[in-house]
Amino acid sequence: MSFPINDGSRPSKLELGRRHTGEVPKQGSPEEAAFAEQIAAPGLAPFDWEVLSKAAARVPEQDPLMLLGRSGLPQRAAPEAPVQSWWRRLKLAWVVPVLVACLALVVVVPRLGGGPGVKGGGVDLDFMLQRDGQMMPGTDAELFHPGDRLQFSYRAPGYEDLVLVGVDGTGELSVYYPRAGELPYPIVPGERHFLDGSIVLDEAPGPEIFVAVFGSGGVSEARELVEDAFERDGLPALEQLAELPGVDVVRIDKEEAP
């Protein structure tokens, strides 16, 4: 059974749709008749102005579905020079004596940190909260509940990918972006963009920390960074990761179970 690629010898479904809706003239082809028959099949919900206008009112100002360029995809900002993560550079330094590497940690890291007050070396992780059908900035909520839906956004000048890792109150670590595989999740450098999809909070107790690692060498590397910090000093150490260049952290506190 095969469905050979449409080489233009037949009208595409978009073209048929445009003819069907009168955007372009009909040509009376058999494909058009078959298409019209398919469209006539039941299933479409009846028009309901109240439902649609309420849905429109819920559309957030920074609407991820509307953050589309002419291409139908998030517009790429002018490319900036990719920034290589500091620990990636440090990793290369393992070939030199440990003493030199330690010295580099002491001297180089504070300099790369950009000085006091520079959060995450210019990157920023933020999120919108969807609860009971309402969207709001994540910072507007003090406590979060199971079932809350979080959609993350980022601003990352100079970075082309990220890994987003979450650690819940039980210490369980989850990689949310990318959803699978070892390669980091590709992002658009520069101004704020939303990540595709959203994360639904489960019933794990306690706070949850989300760590965005920009420009990592891969999922394993980012996991390692988070696991090491967590093993060292638990959730507080994860929050301190925000001081590193190319890393930002979001903490959410969940309502205590009754």
Binding site: L44, A45, V51, L52, S53, A55, A56, R58, V59, D63, L65, M66
Partner: peptide, 10 residues
Amino acid sequence: VQETFARVIR
């Protein structure tokens, strides 16, 4: 369809 028409309205 609903989400798309919501964007049309907005």
